[in-house]
Structures are given as structure tokens and as C-alpha cells.
Design a protein around this nucleic acid. Structure first.
Length: 816
RNA sequence: GCCCGGGUGGCGGAAUUGGUAGACGCUGCGGACUUAAAAUCCGCUGGCCGCAAGGCCGUGCCGGUUCGAGUCCGGCCCUGGGCACCA
């Protein structure tokens, strides 16, 4: 009998061979066509989960495929090592976050190696190491010098019991996750990066990124949210300064029936002085989390302030309200309300009995009842004095011109995008390199004093950051005047580390510069793969950082990722696999049971990469059985005897058919993997070909020659997905050069030729028959043949043929 | 609430540019092999009608465009992701 399929043995053998020959370690070689293949690096949470296995396998298949296409492939791996889970683990287990993190990294690295990924481990990056984060500290100080960072107050979730800032995730139903206290909004000073300075460029360049999914580009466009509108001032009665508001719909200005300000607005505070009810309302508004989803879904509440603004065109008195849905931190903290033509304003007006006025009529002349339903479309102005009858654009220009002429307004471009707040009141992150001096203010740490090292040996209690209790950390001297000064104890948002790691893989050991000339060789990333959940924040921050690095002269490229693949989640029983739901499947156990190839194959076969993947134990079984069938097929073929010469001139019909199937399959799988990233259909095509191979059999030397060609092609084409078994089978087929150095198989065009093809015949679009026609048959003879088909005749006899449609190579449709 | 996806047999999915709906695999059922079981191999497997040939219905729901719609358009339902301090 043949050799049994023993994954453990063959997988170790393949790994040892790759390791000892260091086949995945690459240097810069300008003579070669580089291909930089990257996945979003993992957070070292403890153990590998199925989501990791999925994304890493997708990327590995792409990397190995391009290697076989002759590309000089770099595929690195590293660790996004700062973050909250390490602090939580420290609280629960009393282990310092650093120790917990490093242990997890060691465990997960071993698991990754067992999966046979083609990583260049010599470039491994760990973001919590000072030699890594020193360079983002350095870049921050450069941005400081250029005015790209600044400090301002920003809203956080405040837990009044634990006296600590909470992440949005730590706010459950409006309460602190540990204290259960009602969370409040609080403003504290924080550092910001001016991503808005790049808003136009980040938006415009999306049009030149064909390698990104449309959905991701659309999300980013909407997130940046460029709008053109008018900023205009409303005078306020009494001795108050005017209120400035921004609107994209100046055409609806005559429909303003009230205005609303944020709870934190000075006008609200003024009104509260004389009215305890308003003061109580303002106090109440603060008792909510800061997340936008919370603010947008909560009940819209408001109170009149007893102050009026003056309508700038009609002179009417407009009542001022304080409302919980207006935020001080966005825009001017005040909005004008047009209930007739804005859904939120309409609902608020209905609830509080405020007047609703129609000032826009539908362009098609139809009538609407503004008291029954809001009308938000653009149309023609009515009830708007001299502007009546104008369309949106005419009115926009006329009103904008008016305000610009009288000097109480101007056209502006507004962005929804806000600057990036990078301060975190946490311990386990990269220290923000700023020193506060009583005389010199905030001073960036000079380059020769970087990195500001985070002390790793700490007592971590969970109440506040230990850095705030470590004088040996925060006590220092001012770099400018040498007076005693205090270090910033806030750390960076962990998105800062992940916004530039991709470039650092090019030169992870550079110790006197952030990026060196090697980054010019490897950047940009040719293929980036990761979860859709990163479609906006991580990917936008990375595009921003790449531009900051470009403007610093570190790289020429503006865009970091040429092609983007966003992969779906791994589900079990319809829900995302998670510890909380208790529906996880441990990859390690499966690898031990079936081997890495089976797990890799199942991941690639069960669903296309962008879609959610439903876990199935039976499906994994099936993948294992396929690999065993594959193994047996090759060995049975070898046992059947030597293969003869592949003499194409003497092939019989069945042999020709297998060759055609083989080369059709090479064509299909090349396209499926290389262009479509449809790994599931690539595997299906390989399975089909193997079925066809088994059907032909190994009876004669010529059969065996044809089968040998087909089997070799299957081994080569499946090798990116299941590299270990293919390595062993390649050797078994008698090849002396290792599979890892082989080129992708080529299509033999001659083998694809066929004389006859099958066409479908439809009558009125319904399938009624099939005909076999010569490839080069003309339309008339095809129609003639179609009309002669007995079953087709049943449906056309006695009827008039109005039209016949021939779709070449596919079908004939007879319309009767 | 706002932005972006998804919905096809018992299940995962296929149908790539508007052209044969259900490839490939799983499950299930039947058979071969076996003392038996496992493993393996062969056959069938969307629903309804029919001995068969074949017919009718069918891609979340309602409507439209077209010779032809899973695919395009309008409206709705359900569901997943994101919403700036989870990563």
C-alpha cells in the first residue's frame, strides 16, 4: 500500500526546509520586481483565534502566489502591543502589563510558525519596545515644531465614582463598567494632531485608488464629509455677542423659527444664572457618555432660554433654546433650526410646539403639507421675500453674496472630519514626549533625549495611571531653561503605533532614523489585508501619517496601501466568535488534530474572503478528507507505473479532454487567486480537476503522462493554500528542485482548442433545449438548428417568431 | 440617528460584463466492501406534478425596466460592521 498522509511529519519537514534555507528572508534588490504583502498586525491578546488564522492565511496565499509569479516578496509580521487588555489583565492577575504582553507574543509567535506562514521573521516589530515608539515620539516633536499638533479641551467619559476616564467600550448603558455610576461628559486638555490640514488631499486622492474597495472609499469620503455652506451671524438681544452658525442650506434661511445652543454654551450658562430649571437641565445634559452613537440615538431634549436672536433678513425675533443634541466641541456650538426642511428640527418643533414654516416647494410643482411631513429635498423658494422662485443654487449664491456684502457672513468649506485627539490617560502606551515648564510652557523633548521610556516594572492597580504616582518618571528639567519641570503623563492613542508600522518593517533595525532608504524600496504596501472594521479610523490615520512622513522627507509616497482587501469575520452559529459568547474554536487543537494545511484549506474554501465565514466542524473534516484523497491520488498514480512521453499528436479524445480541463483550470485558478482573490472557487476548480484526473485513470503510459501533467499542475496551484502537503507531493512526483522555488504553471493555449460547443436554446427566455454546434458556425445555421430541436418545436409550433437573439458561445433565444 | 455591507437548497457557498440558478463541498438517504464497525468507493439529494419525456414554481418582500433579472431601477423588511477612548 501507499504511504499514509501524515500531516504532522510532512508539515515539520517542509517548515524545517524553509527555515534552514531562510527562503522568506528578503533583502532590497532593485533589479527585482518587489511585492510587499501585509496583514494588519495582531494585538497580542494571548492566543491565536480563528479570525487571525483567516486573515493571515489570506495574505499568505497572496504572498506565495506572487512569489511563484516571480515577484520579490516581502511578508513581515509584528505586534500591536500597547492597549487596554494588558491593563485589564494586570488588574485581574497582578502581572505588569509588559510581562503579560511579552509572554503572549512568545506564545502567539509559536502558533504562527506552526501554520507555515511565509514570514520574514528577521523584521519582527513589537510596538511597546522603546526602539520602536521612540520614532513616533520623534515625529510628534517634529509635528509640534511645524504646528501640526496642538492642545485643546476635549470631551471624555468621566466616571465620578472611580474618578477616572473611561473608554467608550467601558461605558455600559450609560454607566461605568466597574462602578456602575452614571457616566458624565467632562472636558479635559488633550493633544491633537491636525489631520484636518490634510482633509482635502485625503479626500481627493481616493479618486486615484482603484485598488481599494468602493465601499471603503465611500465610507472615508463620508467620514471626511466635505460640505460647502455659509457661515452667518445672528444678532442676539441684550448685550450678548452675535451667534455664528454654519449651514449648507442658506436657501432655507426664511424657514428659521428657532435656534439651539449646546449645554456648555456661554449663552446657556448666562440664562441658567437666573433660572434654576435651566441650570438643572444643563447639569442633566452632562450625564451621558461622549460617544456619537449615544448622543445621536438619545431622546432629543431642550428648553427655551428666554433670550431671542434677530433674524438677519426679516428682523424677526427667533427664540433661543438649549438642546442636548448640539455639541459645544463641534462647530460653533450653535445651530439654526429649519423645521420645515430638516428632519431632526421638524421632530423637535413638533414635540415643543414650535412653528413650522414652508419655504421650499417641490420643483415639479406638487403640493406638500409641511405640518404632516418634513420636506428635505431641494426645490424652489417660497415665502422668502425677494428670493421667491429661485432654485437652490441661485438662492444659495444670492444669499451668500448678500451676507458677504454686508460683512456678517461668508462662504466656507466645512468638514465633518475632526482633528485626531491622541492623548490617553492610561499607563500602557507610548509616553507623549512633552515637558511642561512654568516659564517655557509645553516643550517637546529634544531628539537627543528620546525615547521617553515607559517604566515597565510597575505596580498596576487600575485606579489612574501609575505614571502619575512616579516622581522618578515625571520629575525632570526643562530642556529650554533647565528649570525643574514636569513630564506629560498621558500616553498616545494606540492607533498612533499602527499608523506607521507598515513603513518601519522596511528598516526595523534603523537606530538613527525613523525610516531609511530601504523604505523607499519597499513602500508602498502592494497588498494590505485586514478587517472592514478598520475601514475608517486605522486606514485614514495611516494615510495621514504616510503624508506627514512624506512631508518630513522620509518617503516619497503619499498613499501607503496600493491594494486593499477587507476580510469578513469568522462566525459560529451565526455570531462572531468571542470568549464572551463562549462560541470560540481553538485553532491550536484543530492544527494538532488535522494539521495546518487542513485548517488553511477550510479557511480558504468555506467562503470568499470579504464575506463572513460560518464555522463548520464538518467542513473541516471535509477539507481533511480532500487532502487525503489528493495525497492518495498522487501516490496511486505513482504506484501505477512510469509515465510515458507526453506525445500530444497521439492523444485520444479522453486524454485531450483532460488536458483541456487542466489548462482551463490553470487559467481559472490564476485569475481566481491573482485578480479576483476568489480562493474558494480556486479550490473548487482544483477539486473538479482532481475528480477529472481520477476519472481518466492510469491504465496506459500515455494516460499516466497526461495525468502526471495534471497532477503536477494541481500541486503547484494548491501550494499557496496548502504549502506543506504540496511540498511533499512535489518531491514524490520526482522533482529534485524544491516546490518553494517553482514558477506558477503556464496555460497551453493549444490545449484549450475545441471543435464543438453546447448552446442553450430558450423560447421567450425559458430554457427549452440544448444544441451542439461547431465553434465557428454562423448565426443563421445555429438558429436553424435551434428551431429544429424537437422540444423547442413544441413551444414555437403554431406561433409567429418575432425575433431571434444569438449570444455567441452561450445561447439562442427565440421570441414568439 | 447617520454612513457602508449582506440576504440564493437541509447547510457553507457558485453563477466574473443582464444570458443554462444551485458549480464545488458538507449533511442526509440508498448501495458496494466488511463477521461487524470505522475508513473508503458508487449513486441520489431545491419544492410540486409525472411511469417517463417533460412541465410548473423558485434567489428576503412589493413593484418596474428588458427578448431575458440572483445580477439593473424604485420602495420596504431583516441582519452584520463603523460612528472618532475596543483593537
Amino acid at each position: 500500500m501507499t504511504v499514509p498522509y501524515d500531516p504532522e511529519v510532512i508539515e515539520k519537514s517542509a517548515r524545517d526546509q524553509w527555515d534552514s534555507a531562510r527562503v522568506f528572508e528578503v533583502d532590497e534588490d532593485p533589479g527585482k520586481d518587489k511585492f510587499y504583502c501585509l496583514t494588519m498586525f495582531p494585538y497580542p491578546s494571548g492566543k491565536l483565534h480563528m479570525g487571525h488564522v483567516r486573515v493571515f492565511t489570506i495574505s499568505d496565499v497572496i504572498a506565495r502566489f506572487h512569489r511563484m509569479q516571480g515577484k520579490h516578496v516581502l511578508q513581515p509580521m509584528g505586534w500591536d502591543a500597547f492597549g487596554m487588555p494588558a491593563e485589564n489583565a494586570a488588574i485581574q492577575r497582578g502581572i505588569p502589563p509588559a510581562q503579560w504582553t511579552y509572554k503572549n507574543i512568545d506564545d502567539m509567535r509559536e502558533q504562527l510558525k506552526r501554520l507555515g506562514y511565509a514570514y520574514d521573521w528577521s523584521r519582527e516589530i513589537t510596538t511597546c519596545r522603546p526602539e520602536y515608539y521612540r520614532w513616533e515620539q520623534w515625529l510628534f516633536t517634529r509635528m509640534f515644531d511645524k504646528g501640526l499638533v496642538y492642545k485643546k479641551n476635549a470631551v471624555v467619559n468621566w466616571d465620578p465614582v472611580d474618578q477616572t476616564v473611561l473608554a467608550n467600550e467601558q461605558v455600559i448603558d450609560g454607566r461605568g463598567w466597574r462602578s456602575d455610576a452614571l457616566v458624565e461628559r467632562r472636558e479635559i486638555p488633550q493633544w491633537f494632531m491636525k489631520i484636518t490640514a490634510y482633509a482635502d488631499e485625503l479626500l481627493a486622492e481616493l479618486d486615484n485608488m482603484p485598488g481599494w474597495p468602493e465601499s471603503v472609499k465611500t465610507m472615508q469620503r463620508n467620514w471626511i464629509g466635505r460640505s460647502e455652506g455659509v457661515e452667518l451671524a445672528f444678532e442676539v438681544e441684550g448685550r450678548h455677542p452675535p451667534l455664528t452658525v454654519y449651514t449648507t442650506r442658506p436657501d432655507t434661511l426664511f424657514g428659521v423659527t428657532y435656534m439651539a445652543v449646546a449645554a456648555e454654551h456661554p449663552l446657556a450658562a448666562k440664562a441658567a444664572e437666573g433660572d434654576p430649571a435651566i441650570a438643572a437641565f444643563i447639569e442633566d445634559c452632562r450625564k451621558t457618555g461622549a460617544a456619537e452613537a449615544t448622543l445621536e440615538t438619545m431622546e432629543k431634549k431642550g428648553m427655551p432660554l428666554g433670550i431671542s436672536a434677530i433674524h438677519p433678513l426679516t428682523g424677526e425675533e427667533i427664540p433661543l433654546w438649549v438642546a442636548n443634541f448640539v455639541l459645544m466641541s463641534y462647530g460653533t456650538g450653535a445651530v439654526m433650526a429649519v423645521p420645515g426642511h430638516d428632519a431632526r428640527d421638524w421632530e423637535f418643533a413638533k414635540k415643543h410646539g414650535l412653528p413650522i414654516r414652508q419655504v421650499i416647494a417641490p420643483a415639479d410643482g406638487s403640493r406638500i403639507d409641511i405640518d404632516n411631513s418634513v420636506f428635505v429635498d431641494k426645490g424652489v423658494l417660497v415665502n422668502s421675500g425677494e428670493y421667491d422662485g429661485m432654485d437652490y443654487q441661485t438662492a444659495f449664491n444670492a444669499i451668500a453674496d448678500h451676507f458677504e456684502q454686508i460683512g456678517s457672513g461668508r462662504r466656507t468649506v466645512n468638514y465633518r472630519l475632526r482633528d485626531w485627539g491622541v492623548s490617553r490617560q492610561r499607563y500602557w502606551g507610548a509616553p507623549i514626549p512633552i515637558i511642561y515648564c512654568d516659564t517655557c510652557g509645553a516643550v517637546p523633548v529634544p531628539a537627543d533625549q528620546l525615547p521617553v521610556v515607559l517604566p515597565e516594572d510597575v505596580e498596576f492597580t487600575g485606579v489612574g495611571s501609575p505614571l502619575k504616582d512616579m516622581p522618578e518618571f515625571y520629575e525632570t528639567d526643562c530642556p529650554t531653561c533647565s528649570a525643574p519641570a514636569r513630564r506629560e503623563t498621558d500616553t498616545f492613542d494606540t492607533f498612533v503605533e499602527s499608523s506607521w508600522y507598515f513603513a518601519r518593517y522596511a528598516c526595523p533595525d534603523a537606530d538613527d532614523v525613523m525610516l531609511d532608504e530601504r523604505a523607499r524600496y519597499w513602500m508602498p504596501v502592494d497588498q494590505y489585508t485586514g478587517g472592514v472594521e478598520h475601514a475608517i479610523l486605522h486606514l485614514l490615520y495611516s494615510r495621514f501619517f504616510q503624508r506627514v512622513m512624506r512631508d518630513e522627507g522620509l518617503t516619497e509616497r503619499a498613499e501607503p496601501f496600493t491594494n486593499l482587501l477587507t476580510q469578513g469575520m469568522v462566525l459560529k452559529d451565526g455570531a462572531k466568535m468571542s470568549k464572551a459568547k463562549g462560541n470560540t474554536v481553538d485553532p491550536q487543537a484543530l492544527i494538532e488534530q488535522y494539521g495546518a494545511d487542513t485548517v488553511r484549506l477550510f479557511m480558504m474554501f468555506a467562503a470568499p474572503p470579504e464575506q463572513a465565514l460560518e464555522w463548520s466542524d464538518d467542513g473541516v473534516q471535509g477539507s481533511f478528507r480532500f487532502l487525503r484523497r489528493f495525497w492518495t491520488a498522487v501516490h496511486a498514480h505513482l504506484d501505477a507505473g512510469p509515465a510515458g512521453e507526453l506525445d500530444l499528436a497521439t492523444l485520444n479524445a479522453a486524454q485531450k479532454e483532460l488536458r483541456r480541463k487542466t489548462h482551463q483550470t490553470i487559467e481559472k485558478i490564476s485569475d481566481d487567486i491573482g485578480r479576483r482573490h476568489a480562493f474558494n472557487t480556486a479550490v473548487a476548480a482544483a477539486m473538479e480537476l482532481l475528480n477529472a484526473i481520477n476519472k481518466l485513470g492510469d491504465a496506459t503510459e500515455l494516460d499516466r503522462a497526461v495525468v502526471r501533467e495534471s497532477l503536477s499542475a494541481v500541486v503547484l496551484m494548491l501550494s499557496p493554500i496548502v504549502p506543506h502537503i504540496c511540498d511533499a507531493l512535489w518531491k514524490a512526483l520526482g522533482h529534485s528542485e524544491p516546490l518553494i522555488d517553482q514558477q506558477w504553471p503556464l496555460v497551453d493555449r493549444d490545449a484549450l482548442q475545441q471543435d464543438m460547443i453546447e448552446l442553450v436554446v430558450q423560447v421567450n427566455g425559458k430554457l427549452r433545449g440544448r444544441i451542439s454546434a461547431a465553434v465557428d458556425a454562423d448565426n443563421d445555421s445555429i438558429v436553424e438548428q435551434a428551431l429544429a430541436d424537437p422540444n423547442v418545436r413544441r413551444f414555437i409550433d403554431g406561433k409567429t417568431i418575432r425575433k431571434t437573439i444569438v449570444v455567441p458561445g452561450r445561447l439562442v433565444n427565440v421570441v414568439v
